[in-house]
Amino acid sequence: MSNQVSGAQAFDKTQRAKIVFSDEALKTVQKIITRYPEGKHKSALLPVLHIAQAEFGGWLSPETMDYVASVLKIKPIEVFEVASFYSMYNLKPVGKCNLEVCRTSSCWSRGSEDIVKYLEKKLGVKVGETTSDGMFTIKTVECLGSCGGAPMLQCGSSFHENLTLEKVDTIVENYRMEGKQKSYTDLDYKNTL
């Protein structure tokens, strides 16, 4: 908690100016809140954190979390509790493309370890690290419900299944060309009902 407060105090006005939802995002947030009964707006926290992560650089800084707390009129600690519980929220900056390779049984049994090793060699970073150009982060994750397409990786909201080393080459090249930030909400969350 004390970290949160000092974090909030530490950021200056220019940063504060940056952490404000776009009109579009704010509209979506308002719409999401209407899904729940009167007074139960805290239910919106998970979806709103996804939007915040997509809006503010792919991760949730203390400032972003404080901002979300103020938007939903809840305490900053309530936001931090949640943000630190769920694996899809990044509490540290990550690369533009998070390559998340599944390592659980079905994917492991069909060679996911080779995929990870190949990615590490290809990108010159280890699992958990980000390439120096800020483009790629390699992560290992647990079963993503794509076991029939093992081995697989997810980047943003895209599933890449039945991976081979050649396929990995193509995927990395394509993302490099796109050069865009990938988050789970890259699928146009603004149209969320």
């Binding site: 909201s157 789970y184 699928l187």
Partner: peptide, 16 residues
């Protein structure tokens, strides 16, 4: 689950 984000979009389109 959040990782099924694209499926959530499919459901939302169907709900609409």
């Amino acid at each position: 689950r959040g990782e099924y984000f694209y499926v959530a979009r499919i459901l939302e389109a169907a709900i609409e």
